[in-house]
Design a protein around this nucleic acid. Structure first.
Ligand SMILES: [Mn+2]
Ligand SMILES: [Mn+2]
Ligand SMILES: [Zn+2]
Ligand SMILES: [Zn+2]
Lengths: 134, 134
DNA sequence: TTACTAAATGATAATCATCATCAATTAACA
DNA sequence: TGTTAATTGATGATGATTATCATTTAGTAA
């Protein structure tokens, strides 16, 4: 009698993708995650990784970080926080700068947009790359 | 006697690309700019547009905006300012929120990175897209 | 347990943005 | 005006992401 409820299944693929992402703080790309997951599920497809990361990001379980660089990155830490990207090697780290709540308030006043959120991306050179610059 | 100075030429292509970018405040993508420029230079190649946008961005004449969305965007306004992107249609607008200089100072204290800069990207729904949501 | 079915997967192809290559053209300058 | 290295336009290559679809499977109920 009810309309068929669209079921979201708990597949092994999904669980392992989330587990592997939760293990690291490196903000891996989809294909980095694919390599990590393949050690436990050698037959998983790259498309499955993309599909599930997208789904989990939409549902708010994880964060999709779209910053500079060519690939999107993912983050199991969903607390609001900022990032810094190395302009040499592209790595992305968390940065411990407190979130500025006033920014969203100011944005609401000065824009006709319906504001949803904000993100701050710092750029710089990571310590590894600083050393390598002879 | 001097080492041959690598000459940067003032080509018509370069001038027109910069002129067209300066006309708008819409943060066009490379292919949007290609369409704009082609009206005046029908034989220009898309590669030329990419090449020159990259060059101008490196030299600081223009800004390359790498935010959410699939394509990079370009900006003739080089003063430090923040942007807002519509999560529905992807358009990018300037937002009149004052730049927070303290952010970089704080980042320098709390990170081993050599900090180069920062950018704030707000997300929201633009007024056009608000209307269309029946 | 078993059977049913819609959701999900894995393999593969398609798409899209960007970059690389290279012969032909051209801006700068002697 | 001739020389030459920088640049262009055409084209192909690359890399990331998305779409397609036959096959598999999680969830459910008999
Ligand atoms: Mn993070
Ligand atoms: Mn701008
Ligand atoms: Zn680095
Ligand atoms: Zn919009």
């Amino acid at each position: 009698m009810n309309a068929p409820a669209s079921m979201i299944r708990l597949t092994t693929q999904r669980q392992i993708i989330l587990e592997e992402l939760s293990k690291v703080t490196s903000h891996p790309t989809a294909s980095e995650l694919y390599d990590m997951v393949r050690k436990r599920l050698p037959r998983i497809g790259l498309g499955t990784v993309y599909r599930n990361l997208e789904l989990m990001a939409e549902s708010g379980m994880i964060l999709k970080i779209e910053v500079g660089g060519t690939q999107k990155r993912f983050d199991a830490t969903t607390d609001e926080h900022y990032h810094i990207r190395c302009s040499v090697c592209g790595r992305v780290d968390d940065i411990d700068v407190p979130v500025v709540k006033e920014l969203v308030a100011q944005a609401k006043e000065s824009s006709a947009y319906m504001i949803q959120g904000h993100h701050v991306e710092f750029t710089g050179i990571c310590s590894d790359c600083q050393k390598k610059q002879h």
